[in-house]
Design a protein around this nucleic acid. Sequence first.
DNA 1: ATTGACTGTCAATTAACTTGACTATCTATC
DNA 2: GATAGATAGTCAAGTTAATTGACAGTCAAT
Lengths: 159, 159
Amino acid sequence: MNTPGAFFEYIPLPVLLRHARNTYGSAMRRALDDAGYDDIPGNGLYIIGGLALGGPDIPLGQLIREMRLSKQAAGQLVDTLVTRGYLERAMDKDDRRKLTIALTERGRAAAATQAAAREKVDAELLASVGQDDLSRTRRTLAVLCDIGHQTERAPDDEP
Amino acid sequence: MNTPGAFFEYIPLPVLLRHARNTYGSAMRRALDDAGYDDIPGNGLYIIGGLALGGPDIPLGQLIREMRLSKQAAGQLVDTLVTRGYLERAMDKDDRRKLTIALTERGRAAAATQAAAREKVDAELLASVGQDDLSRTRRTLAVLCDIGHQTERAPDDEP
DNA sequence: ATTGACTGTCAATTAACTTGACTATCTATC
DNA sequence: GATAGATAGTCAAGTTAATTGACAGTCAAT
């Protein structure tokens, strides 16, 4: 990719997906670093972004499954995000096994920074390829996600 | 994504990209596990797949930059892949600083398994969305990669 | 020859994730 | 209602992956 269009006549789709995802990842990471939110662990972006989108009452379990992370790892991740001031834990009053996580003020600010960086890339992409290709791409990616969900199991799924 | 089409009215592109990539990742990983190649570390797939594509003389440095990995981490990764019988190291005879890595027999077999798994997903995707959308998606993803390459630096880049 | 850039290694540390065992809470069945 | 099973999360220990910093060998250009 440093020698654009060379070497590989055919770049595998997973490699393209990885680099494309990385464009967003780097942009978001850099924006957050520049704004002083430089202590968010890797998957933290996923949680913070997901909470910002899904509202404060999004079930943690759903995010965990999407991330393919064991519940222990997720617990640790939430722990550090709480420690660093991005999240708050609270008990779910209907089901006291569950915990609810919500963004703090700092968390919301970080989420806003992250979303802005994402939208900036979105805008560049839209300007380059146009709305039609963008929509088709979205649809194609959604199909790809579904293909995965038909056969997969989470890391700590019981057989 | 476990509740398809629900909750989020708009799934951010980086999230879609992540899950789409994961479809390939899981499929490849499972195929390799089933075939007995169950000791390949995460980024090992990238190296093995990249070598299979680019021929035995692909510069390691290029793969490293694509992976955004420090050279030390790359060295360790190659180490374990050598230890586990997937790669061979050799000195570059023209520039004795460089080392060349090449797939062993076992490495080629693993690469073939991996490629087969990838192509199976490719085929499913093609059957679902058709060649036109697939090509447009590829092009869109390539644009996204380029957007990233305009502004980025590797993990251990000097300022 | 000597300086500087490049390629990779060594050693130690940190970060992220996993496994396994456990508690507490809810749900369903008897 | 008791109790068996499933669900949500925690605790602790261990493993793996990647980082940092210091270094040695090689090349290219004065």
